[in-house]
Design a protein around this nucleic acid. Structure first.
Lengths: 243, 243
DNA sequence: ACCTGAACACCGTTCAAGT
DNA sequence: ACCTGAACACCGTTCAAGT
């Protein structure tokens, strides 16, 4: 919490030398980057990212749109800050992972990441749009790569394993909770749709209609993750030397 | 090609009883759904999905925005049609897969899918936003599930394998070619960024900076895909009976 | 009967004017 | 010196008016 970690140069995180402390908004709470980003995320959670408007955000902050532009240079830059804020909610303590095998630890980390993404389904497109280079994104990448390295993975395998797992988690989450899936009743609707198809034309889809739509989300996530980890285990086992 | 496969009831594909054939646009080519969707995809490829405007699209068709609305009900509906158009470009002939093992066949199908996505990087967010229920999406799902079933996968494993592979491909593609990655020089920029970090704070990230940014995209894709297939092979091997 | 110019409400962004 | 009302150009969408 507190001060958004450290200011990192480069992409959207050069906001160390942004607008100084607000001065006179007597009675009203101050407008700073932290409050803007937090309010933006809250609004995105409520109304969706498509519906988020700078005017709406300014109203929620009891301010005006012009004032917002003193703290970022464009709406896209704000959204990058929101994305990093979401990544900051992934909390995995170092102790929690310490006694686990690499496979258990990666599972815990991936589940924590997935859980956070599921708590902000409306913000998911932000995380898929770019490589996260904000402070919280850096922190997560550092820790997961460290995890692989500390369990004897060579550096190239560790890097690719990180990429594969990260892409799997985001890719899975965005397709389960993407912008086109507002209501949880979607699953039964989709199943009805599959079942309404002509079995002559779509025998496999209609036969698998139940399985395609009824499996609990979390279980399907774990299934694919375990497939990845099985493969990683095999790749690691084929190395000349293990630990 | 030709006539967009068959009209499927439900989601965005109830455009069988849309506007009838265009009548008098003497000299100018007619405006129909196929040409609208094709032109929209071409424009998205050129200028990006964020920049696509209905006015721009109307201009390219030598028409007006109001005319477009005779063929779809909203911009979102048009974009769903564009997404299905992209899926229609995934061409895998049945003969091509016939002599292969299930693992080789799934690899060919996944590569074809991935290749198509890479040819339309600007359209990727469309495919991640929703479960594809258009005719081309249905066709692809049907064929891949059929593939698993025909190689002895039980129906629940086939459905989950389809979901895992599909999510992996889209998830990987969107993060490699998403809206935030217009130029191919991004990789060296990202590497410079990783290298500019404090090695005391980010030892693993800086150590893996090269591996995180230099591996050819296609190779990384294959790496993760092989992990998934390794896992599938194991899950299939643990069944009571194989073929 | 089909097409479309022109308007409507609203968006992200900017800047001159306020305090 | 910092904030912001009001405007600017533009967006998706609609409908009365054209042919």
């Amino acid at each position: 919490m507190s001060s958004e970690a450290e200011p990192v140069p480069g992409s959207p995180a050069w906001w160390g030398n942004r607008a100084p402390a607000p001065v006179y908004r007597r009675g009203r709470p101050p407008v700073d980057v932290g409050r803007i980003v937090g309010t933006a995320l809250k609004l995105i959670d409520e109304v969706g990212i498509q519906a988020l408007t700078l005017r709406m955000l300014a109203d929620a902050l009891d301010s005006g749109t012009a004032t917002l532009y003193r703290h970022f240079n464009s709406k896209d830059e704000l959204l990058a800050l929101v994305a990093d804020r979401v990544l900051g909610e992934v909390r995995v303590s170092r102790e929690e992972l310490h006694d686990l095998s690499w496979r258990e630890a990666v599972t815990v980390a991936a589940e924590a990441f997935y859980g956070t993404l599921c708590r902000h389904p409306q913000a998911l497109p932000l995380l898929a749009a770019q490589v996260p280079v904000g402070p919280n994104g850096l922190r997560g990448r550092e820790r997961l790569i460290t995890l692989f390295l500390s369990h004897g993975f060579p550096i190239d395998l560790a890097a690719r394993a990180f990429t594969a797992v990260g892409h799997y988690v985001i890719g899975f989450a965005i397709q389960q909770h993407g912008p086109g899936t507002p209501h949880p009743e979607e699953h039964s609707q989709l199943r009805n749709y599959y079942n309404s198809l002509d079995p002559e034309l779509y025998p496999a889809t209609t036969a698998a209609a139940y399985e395609l739509t009824s499996v609990p989300l979390h279980e399907e996530f774990r299934f694919g993750l375990d497939l990845l980890l099985d493969g990683l285990e095999k790749a690691r086992g084929q190395l000349p030397a293990g630990d």
